[in-house]
Design a binder for these strands. Structure first.
Lengths: 206, 206
DNA sequence: TAGATTGTTAATCGATTAACAATC
DNA sequence: TAGATTGTTAATCGATTAACAATC
């Protein structure tokens, strides 16, 4: 392909959130500068790797004897990750998990507005965490009007493929899927599987 | 190090859950054989890569003209991933997310018993999804008695580090952390960050 | 200054892809 | 048989690590 602007390895991108998390922790403790080796030790990776990664995103080089300025680095990584473009998202399935995510505070810090949840069952319609839960009939209307491209799928396993077809039909192009099922989607639609059991099993296995 | 038994790349291991998910879907539709290229197309990876991966776990080679036997392959991957060793886990924090995970059906298929949740607030004590919610005072007792090594952390951000210290103290060695905070843990304790906002942001960014 | 820490170039390592013979 | 599909060896590609000069 050849992206002339700023080629960056997938591996590097995938480490950025962990740097960000660590740096925010340090910033919260009032730390102003942090060295690549401190980051490396805390995260269990190599210091050279950290320097290489940071060189690609930081707007200012690290200072010998000091390290990197924590606050600036946080801004740089957030900017790089695109956290300042705002995105609207919806939740499909207002069971326990769906409602918990609807009420989750963490998204707003990352440029994501979760605007509503939807459920096929009339008894679930209402609100949770100050946000509305609509019947599925209203999905198309609201997705189109708010140009929503992202959906979080929290329906039971048996309903997942049907719900997926439905949200793809109304224009969703990215799905965060909590149902432990493989989803068939057309080209151009991205699915990320957030399989809690797999995460947990992976953690145990190592 | 040199693990003489069966060296397997991390990348390969990380792809196994997606193969498993896909194969279970096919098995559910009654498909008996599946080719590496069919798997590759569905998952958006290369067919040679699939064959190489499967060669490392399958107890029987694929058949030319047919492909791989779906049912056998599912068993082989599950066995490889260690899904048949049972593990006990607990949930720390019985808010919306914690209770939703406590009630989640998916774990039992993967060899994980989530035996209980714990919460610092007396008002949360009780049960959800047919499983008990205990006060934090009972943590040590129950963790030790059931030799629990894995905890799922679903407390608010501000309580995460304190809760983490507590569970490490009672003997937990693996943590699935839903709080969007970097956790300081001693060597030998593994943390996996399940940051919903980061997952979602990553999905949007690509 | 001396020394800690950075950034970069070269070398190693690992994983993916390409090519092709083997097989049912 | 013919042809689809497998498994493997060699070549490419990318990422990590090692070595070291530059800098505050």
């Amino acid at each position: 392909m050849g992206s002339p602007e700023n080629a960056m390895s997938k591996a590097t991108v995938s480490r950025m959130p962990s740097y960000l998390r660590y740096l925010k922790g340090e910033a919260g403790k009032g730390v102003e500068y942090v060295s690549s080796s401190a980051i490396a030790t805390a995260l269990g990776v190599s210091a050279v790797g950290v320097r290489k990664d940071l060189a690609l995103v930081s707007s200012q080089p690290g200072k010998p004897r000091f390290g990197f300025e924590v606050r600036r680095l946080i801004e740089d990584i957030e900017k790089f990750l695109g956290y300042h473009r705002w995105t609207n998202a919806v939740i499909i399935g207002a069971g326990g998990l769906g409602r918990a995510i609807l009420a989750y505070e963490g998204f707003e810090n990352y440029g994501i507005h979760v605007i509503a949840a939807f459920d096929a069952s009339p008894s679930k319609v209402g609100a949770a965490g100050g946000k509305p839960i609509y019947p599925m009939e209203r999905l198309s209307d609201i997705v189109v009007r708010n140009s929503v491209k992202v959906a979080i799928l929290t329906v039971p396993r048996s309903a997942a493929q049907a719900a997926c077809d439905e949200i793809v039909r109304v224009g969703i192009t990215a799905i965060l899927n909590f149902a432990p099922v493989y989803l068939h989607v057309p080209d151009g639609v991205k699915v990320k599987y957030e399989d809690l059991a797999v995460s947990l099993a992976g953690l145990c296995g190592e």
